[in-house]
Design a protein around this nucleic acid. Sequence first.
DNA 1: CCGTATCCATGCTGATACTG
DNA 2: CAGTATCAGCATGGATACGG
Lengths: 125, 125
Amino acid sequence: MPFIVGTPLPNPVPAEEHERCPVTAVLRRVGDKWTVLVVVLLGQRAHRFNELHRAIEDISQRMLTRTLRGLVEDGLVHREVFPTVPPSVQYSLTPLGRTLLEPLSALASWAVEHGDEIASARRPT
Amino acid sequence: MPFIVGTPLPNPVPAEEHERCPVTAVLRRVGDKWTVLVVVLLGQRAHRFNELHRAIEDISQRMLTRTLRGLVEDGLVHREVFPTVPPSVQYSLTPLGRTLLEPLSALASWAVEHGDEIASARRPT
DNA sequence: CCGTATCCATGCTGATACTG
DNA sequence: CAGTATCAGCATGGATACGG
């Protein structure tokens, strides 16, 4: 019984229901500083850890680790360790992760199209 | 030159470019605790302040104020004061705010469809 | 009715240093 | 190479009290 979709909301919206709403959960998941960028990079091709680190100029090792770990835990990213010396780890989108790209693109298109309207609303000319 | 859309990303992605990426900006905007729920409620009809307060069981007055103020500043919500006694204030979506509902629904559909996969990935059976 | 002001707990983010 | 450990700053969120 999640929100947004056509279904009418209960009134009042109970606390617990909002906590478990998958829509809010996904947005909060993806609304942090680095997740989307990492997902997009992995959507282009698989990357190794330091490859991502170099590809994102200002991310710290710590935040890259945390971001990837979160995505792996949610089943959106696949982590594969190759037992070479030195070790190498490859990250790639899972099938589930790839399905996320489409609705993300829809929101991206909106952002591209209306981003300047928001900016001009904030700083009126 | 935002991310996600078909355009290839620079390598490395410069810090400044990521800061100003409208896609990330929108997701962080909408990725807080209450914004989406408020937008959805206002998408159904205009609400007064205390109407929203009652409609969302566990939101504090402070957070409702902050959420609404942010949306108004971004031009997504319209605030209209009626000089009655006691005063009444009505909030409604602007045309820009209404256009946000559609891409949000796309992400909502994804969340509804795949939310349980994420949940089961987190707690493997 | 519609907020503000204050204080506080928690979490996100980053810098730096270190390890198998 | 691919992380972990520790510490610190700032932002987010909530509780409570007060004001126009």
